[in-house]
Write a protein that binds this DNA or RNA. Sequence first.
DNA 1: TATGAATGAGCATTCATTCAT
DNA 2: AATGAATGAATGCTCATTCAT
Lengths: 208, 208, 208, 208
Amino acid sequence: MPKKVPSQALEVKDSISVGAVTTGKPLRADARRNRELILDVATKVFATEGLDVPIDEIANRAGIGIGTVYRHFPTKEELIEAVVFSFKQRLIEKASEMLEQNDPGQAFFNFLSLIVREGTGNKALIAALSRSGADIQRPLSGISLNFQNVLGELLNRAQQAGSVRSDIQVTDLTAILFSVLRTLEHNDDSGLSERILSVVCDGLRGRC
Amino acid sequence: MPKKVPSQALEVKDSISVGAVTTGKPLRADARRNRELILDVATKVFATEGLDVPIDEIANRAGIGIGTVYRHFPTKEELIEAVVFSFKQRLIEKASEMLEQNDPGQAFFNFLSLIVREGTGNKALIAALSRSGADIQRPLSGISLNFQNVLGELLNRAQQAGSVRSDIQVTDLTAILFSVLRTLEHNDDSGLSERILSVVCDGLRGRC
Amino acid sequence: MPKKVPSQALEVKDSISVGAVTTGKPLRADARRNRELILDVATKVFATEGLDVPIDEIANRAGIGIGTVYRHFPTKEELIEAVVFSFKQRLIEKASEMLEQNDPGQAFFNFLSLIVREGTGNKALIAALSRSGADIQRPLSGISLNFQNVLGELLNRAQQAGSVRSDIQVTDLTAILFSVLRTLEHNDDSGLSERILSVVCDGLRGRC
Amino acid sequence: MPKKVPSQALEVKDSISVGAVTTGKPLRADARRNRELILDVATKVFATEGLDVPIDEIANRAGIGIGTVYRHFPTKEELIEAVVFSFKQRLIEKASEMLEQNDPGQAFFNFLSLIVREGTGNKALIAALSRSGADIQRPLSGISLNFQNVLGELLNRAQQAGSVRSDIQVTDLTAILFSVLRTLEHNDDSGLSERILSVVCDGLRGRC
DNA sequence: TATGAATGAGCATTCATTCAT
DNA sequence: AATGAATGAATGCTCATTCAT
């Protein structure tokens, strides 16, 4: 039985080329701390205020210099991607957990529900995902590919169990998910989330 | 037998003065031409490149001076709204036509289908709907209200005819539409559109 | 005994080259009317809001087109000068009246008092005068010369009567006047006007 | 025997952070140099060309980027105020020195004389004073209040010594000073300055 | 002549990114 | 490594002036 991935996704920083330069060296302790700090703050700030927040703002709220932010993430774009990365990482963990469940249909719909719950009102998740996820044509790599894989796994099982209509593909699903999240971007009315989720789930079950 | 839509929803002003000041005077021939030119260009540009395109760009592509754009639309915001206005206007017209149809369910789903078809890859349309769909709390006015009214009419009839689940509200619907459009923003793959539309429609019919 | 100049200073329009093109032809009736209208509005608007008011504003308030304003005053600068012109014209009239008085000292100080009273809170008078009047080196011509002449006349007589210290020159005086007016630009507190006027008058009488 | 000015008026902050945010940290060497450079250039440029000079111009003349100007003074207004600040600061120092003199009347008139000398042809100084002198209603704060305090001190003593008429108030005085400076704005003819100063001083002594 | 539409240089301000300390 | 100062392209908007109707 697979152990749970540590929820903080810490082992990322140097082996995978997200942000910073990809040297083989592990980061110094303080640097690693800063990297995480930036990521945390950025995640929070992006989540609440959207991606238009200037880098200065993030540096300030993190209590560090702009230069430091840029040292870790040479580009705003890369910072955003790193944030997305963490999100996807978290979602992947959750998905893995769900895969353990017995009922494939249940697992699948639970996951959808989870995403909707996490994403409601989270501007960063949405805006960020919409960048890397909405463009379906683009071939995926790294984390996004992983994410898609787990999602596909969940989907397949549910389809094989007859809980989800069979003509749907993973890419359709991601598209739908991102789209729903975006809708909830400005609305934290949970009633709305529920109803939309319900519509989507019913729709995925297929015509009666 | 379907009644005609309440005239309130239909008598959208059709001649002049959207954005800018609403004087009674019709625009001079050349001004009207320019106004429409700007609107056309803006619509296209916004649709393809998003709302961040600078006004200069629009002016250039239209082959006119910046000042002219600002004469017609004193604010970028107003230009956007004018673009949105046209879109909603078109959709309202279509919706009105659909209301003539005998089968309320058919009418409703046809309209959804229409919107999806028109909206695929069209950022401006998405922005348009996002105004009435994204921020649900904000009370609507003018064209957006009209749009919501026609949509509500279509929805109600379909619900009374039992073609659509009854817990759905107009605002949910706009949210969903918006959501779907957003998804199709970067994807003109028609297969995707079809499947998503299908999922949404099935979902709206309700659990079997 | 000289008749009073008509207070509206109408005979200006074509013989003196202020504003418009200096053709010999008198203006058509409606043109003349417009010219005066513009001047009136500009005077009032400049007086209350300062010289930064856009020409559009003036045209609008006058209920005519911008083009018309520009036809009469090819440049904003010229419109301003025309406004100044009227002011000076009025002051010249008044000064002429004062010259009729028996007591030269009285006449002189009355005139100062008049200017202060008229100028208090009148942004246009002040800003305008400060343009054409504050630069003392520049040789005067036209109306400004006239103005200076009358003022000089008042001054001379008062000096000869021993009511004003003799080292003061007309240019000093205009400078002082403009300066006082500017001070009162933003203050309509009449107490202040009084005291400043009093200081200046006492100062002009000379050391006791 | 003249007491020292109340320390409140003197302890103007002298090191850093005028305009911008007032953090406790001293500026880095290069930053301080730039800040002063900007201030110098701005002072000179404002003084000679008025406050309408674009920020670009100032940046160019200082040989630095626009952004740098904005880093130090987030707003044009703040830059202007900083310039004003320096001026008033200098004047306050001078005034404090004068307060040391034995003869209160002498001290007072010397200060006036100083201001006139410094202010002749200096648009920035004029703007500076105009902040505290032009709009008398507005309650003062910070440096302007300090300035007014020292000036008031000088005035009071001179009045108590019988050298200045007693109906004059500090605000009248600033107004007058402002007024005189405005007059000298475009004129560096020292004869003019002298005569005007003389008139004002005599006027302030009061009717004989 | 009158009108007001068109023009575009000009300006304040922001922000991602680079670089000296 | 960290810092934060410097940079300057980019952007929304204004307004004097010109010109077609």
